[in-house]
Amino acid sequence: MTRDTEQVRQPGICVGRDRGNDRPVLTELYHALETLKRCGKETIVDIKSLPFGSIDEQRLAEFLGKGEVEAVLHALGESRITETAFPGIWWIEHRDEHGEITAKSIEVANIPGILKSQHDDVADACRRLGSLVQLADPDEEPGSIET
């Protein structure tokens, strides 16, 4: 509550967008992390649907900080998957071809699902690589490359 009044006094800062909703999210993340540690269960928090003020989100991002991994996914526009300073908590931002954010979430997992190579894509890759290997060495059995 005191934070609100501080914002009011500072000129130039957009007033009232501080809803203090980053606190409960941190509590939720703590419990999610604890669950992940205990039994490996993953949690996803949708940030876009939270009544965040711009200040809330900024403060949450700053609090979580940046960790060791930062991945960029190029599919239907760019997506940025960043491990926060708290390993196991990932900040995920999906953008479309025009750089507009289409989804934003925090995933509590050992590795976010979308980073893993997907079965369909692996099968596709296998087919493609198989035919390439066959072209290079027609005697080799393509299936044996598969792990």
């Binding site: 996803i44 928090v45 949708d46 876009k48 649907s49 996914l73 599919a75 239907l76 997506s79 999906h94 479309d96 289409t102 989804a103 934003k104 979430s105 995933e107 699902g113 979308i114 997907q118 079965h119 369909d120 894509d121």
Partner: peptide, 29 residues
């Protein structure tokens, strides 16, 4: 989507964005 050359990852991203668009939980992806 696949015929348009969109990978499975892209499809999952499309689903995540659709969930966000429908105001559904990401757990619904």
């Amino acid at each position: 989507l696949r015929a348009q050359g969109i990978s499975r990852r892209g499809f999952l991203k499309f689903c995540a964005s659709t969930a966000s668009l429908m105001a559904l939980s990401p757990a619904m992806v």
